[in-house]
Design a protein around this nucleic acid. Structure first.
Lengths: 228, 228
DNA sequence: TCAAAAGTGTTTTATGTACACCCATGG
DNA sequence: CCATGGGTGTACATAAAACACTTTTGA
């Protein structure tokens, strides 16, 4: 049994891939490989397979570009303007991903001509992709104000100055370091290491690891990480 | 020019329609008119037309059931499990709507055998529709904790006890009326009317209207309406 | 020895929470 | 005159914000 007289549509998944390298918040985009509008900057995307779940499609597309699995990936929004793709009507389900740039395998880069752009220097993208990026950033700001998602962008060991710089970039505004440290440490989610990162200062900054149990248990608890 | 060798999919929109009548928070569902699994309870839904925007499809479907236009409608999530619809693979974009039940025209009811159910008494729904309802409720709780969306469920004139009862039902927990009133009134979004609603008490409760300008300007400002 | 980043406390202010009584009215 | 729901204020606790100096150490 089938539904009759219903027009099917092409369904794509587009991934808004955010990365942090300890210094800058960045977006991973590709030079579009397929005609037309090839050689223009675009989000990484692909069509949803015949019997493929949307989340699986997003994971597949993400890992085909980054080589990464088990990445933080969240559905953002479905975009369905009938004219959003001038080639053929395509409905796109946008996902955003948060990854630690250092985990990213650069090899696959070449296949797709992918590049990391600082968030403020992202060029014009095809279709409605700039709009998607903006929506994803808005959602991350919203989420990160209440839930500790930004740890997904950091390596296992990270310093508090790195963490603070990340928050400052996500919100594009300076944060008082004393208040920030107090909030973060009072959440109990950080485990101090003995080792120091001396790459940014002579004194060195202690590394911390995330207490994953506490991170998970506090994830839904409406914390407040952001001033004002 | 077209994309080649890509399998298209049926795309549906399903609407999670919440309503409030001044007493109970309710959900509007229908007896499914199409075979198979007809005569089972279901969210109101429909397929996305050939050149139809997703939002437009949701509006069309919502107003075909309720007769209402200009209703609060927000995209919830795209559901794409290949087996979610046993008849044929269908990807569903879920939307939720908030409406004042008293505005709802009952005539169209009969066409779809629609009924309002108290939220706690919603029966088993087809496919993944119960899951959608739960996700919608979660999202509304999230949104309403920070943004004044619940006014969408109220008529133009409403009383504070009605408003509080609405919050209590959305969060399924009692709220201290003194603290609630203080928070709500201190937002400056309410305009007191001279008229009273005497339907629930001898003394009567003053009607209020929403100051739409203040409502809009404070919509994004991360208020906090919910205790704890 | 000094430049540059890391780390540390206290005070003030705002916000949230707990809590109980009087008011107005129609029946 | 009283039962019912509407409305009001205060004291306390908690959380956020503002704010500046000392520490460490490699060059």
């Amino acid at each position: 049994m089938k539904y009759l007289n219903q027009k099917p549509h092409l369904i794509a998944v587009d991934c808004i891939i955010f990365g942090y390298d300890g210094e800058d918040l960045k977006l991973l985009i590709i030079k579009r490989p397929i005609q037309p509008v090839s050689d223009q900057w675009s989000l990484m995307g692909g069509f949803v397979g015949e019997s493929e779940d949307l989340n699986d499609a997003a994971k597949r597309i993400l890992s085909s570009l980054t080589g990464l699995h088990d990445v933080y990936l969240e559905q953002l929004h479905a975009y369905g303007d009938p004219n959003r793709d001038p080639i053929e009507r395509t409905i796109s389900i946008a996902y955003f991903a948060l990854i630690d740039i250092k985990k990213y395998s650069k090899q696959i880069n070449n296949l797709y001509h992918a590049e990391w752009f600082k968030l403020k220097e992202v060029p014009e993208l095809i279709f409605d992709h700039n709009r998607m990026v903006k929506a994803a950033l808005d959602k991350i700001r919203y989420q990160a104000a209440l839930h500790p998602i930004l740890f997904e962008l950091l390596p296992k060991k990270f310093t508090i100055p790195q963490l603070q710089a990340l928050y400052e970039q996500v919100y594009d505004s300076p944060i008082d370091n004393r208040n920030f440290i107090r909030k973060i440490t009072s959440s109990g989610m950080l485990i101090k290491q003995n080792e120091k990162d001396k790459s940014n200062s002579k004194r060195g900054a202690f590394y911390f690891k995330l207490d994953k149990l506490k991170h998970r248990s506090q994830f839904q608890s409406f914390l407040n990480f952001i001033p004002k």
